[in-house]
């Protein structure tokens, strides 16, 4: 593998990691503040992608689509929080899993009913299409590079929101002791709805960003959801910092593994066997990573209690 290819794949891994972070941040925030495991987070990602594709197709503007993805997912998030999720905060995890699994079925079939089973396609806006030459002479797609930049900005924005603003103080207080902040006169119900809608908006935004790279279809959120679970297990549940570190780690390990394992096995096997073994093993790599983290740090890389 040449240095240029390695660097390109590293950037791809970073881009993948950044989109995973947008998903994982919402999941881990919702878990940290409300103690809720939300399987329907992947559905919100899908809602965002479909909203973006539909609005972009109707208006011809990707940017309006992007705004629509955040608005639609945040709205859908607030809606399910107020109708269903709210009733689950005091239930055990089994009930939360089942109810949010039911929401997945409802969202997926609802989406299939409205948009049909065929994938929609979302074009990258003209200004971001094509490659850019990086310092060192390496050409790289502008769109992917912008995802990395935007993801970095979102991470920074989340940090500022949680560390510096009044809402952030309330969110942190809600994580620490929900009875106490309710007793201090903070409207905890509204706070929960806002946190849930914030996480949903991020998921929808991620869906729209990835939708332009891949296709927009029913069920697109589920593989990403499970990867986001892996991310927050590795990072430590409830920790945004852990989610950021772990999502970039997972993104890079997965991308580099897929590229390098087949050629690594090719060194001592015939090419077709190396290809099949390499690709099957590389699809397991991040789960192995998760298992290793679990063995040595069962609480995740960034422990909430530590």
């Amino acid at each position: 593998m040449t240095a240029a290819l390695f660097f390109e794949q590293l950037l791809n891994g970073l881009q993948f990691g950044v989109t995973l972070f947008l998903m994982a941040a919402g999941l881990t925030l919702v878990f940290g503040v409300m103690g809720l495991i939300n399987l329907a987070h992947g559905s919100l990602y899908m809602v965002g992608a479909f909203a973006c594709a539909a609005v972009a197709a109707a208006t011809g503007s990707f940017w309006l689509g992007l705004v629509a993805s955040i608005v639609a997912a945040a709205f859908a998030g607030a809606l399910i929080e107020m109708t269903v999720i709210r009733r689950l905060y005091n239930r055990d995890h089994l009930d939360q899993v089942l109810a949010t699994f039911a929401l997945i079925l409802i969202f997926s079939e609802g989406c299939r009913f409205i948009f049909g089973s065929f994938p929609l396609f979302l074009d990258v806006p003209a200004i971001l299409a094509g490659p850019i030459t990086l310092p060192g002479g390496l050409p790289y797609p502008i769109y992917r590079l912008s995802i990395i930049v935007v993801g970095g900005l979102v991470a920074l924005g989340l940090y500022l929101l949680i560390a510096k603003t009044r809402l952030g103080i309330r969110i942190r207080a809600g994580e620490a002791d929900r009875e106490m902040i309710a007793a201090l006169g903070v409207d905890i119900r509204t706070l929960y709805t806002i946190v849930f809608a914030l996480g949903a908006g991020l998921a929808g935004f991620a869906g729209a960003l990835v939708g332009a790279l891949q296709s927009v279809q029913v069920g697109m959120g589920e593989p990403v959801l499970i990867l986001a679970f892996v991310v927050i297990v590795i990072g430590g549940i409830g920790s945004i910092k852990g989610a950021l570190i772990a999502s970039i780690l997972v993104g890079i390990v997965d991308t580099l593994g897929r590229v390098s394992l087949p050629s690594l096995f090719g060194l001592f096997m015939d090419p077709s066997a190396a290809n099949s073994i390499g690709s099957s093993l590389s699809s397991m790599l991040i789960y192995v990573l998760m298992a290793v983290v679990l063995i040595f740090k069962p609480e995740g890389l960034v422990s909430q209690n530590g």
Partner: peptide
């Protein structure tokens, strides 16, 4: 789209 209704029933049973 029967799974839509399965989702509703499941939601009802859980809640």
């Amino acid at each position: 789209h029967w799974q839509f209704f399965l989702g509703l029933v499941l939601l009802g049973v859980v809640l």
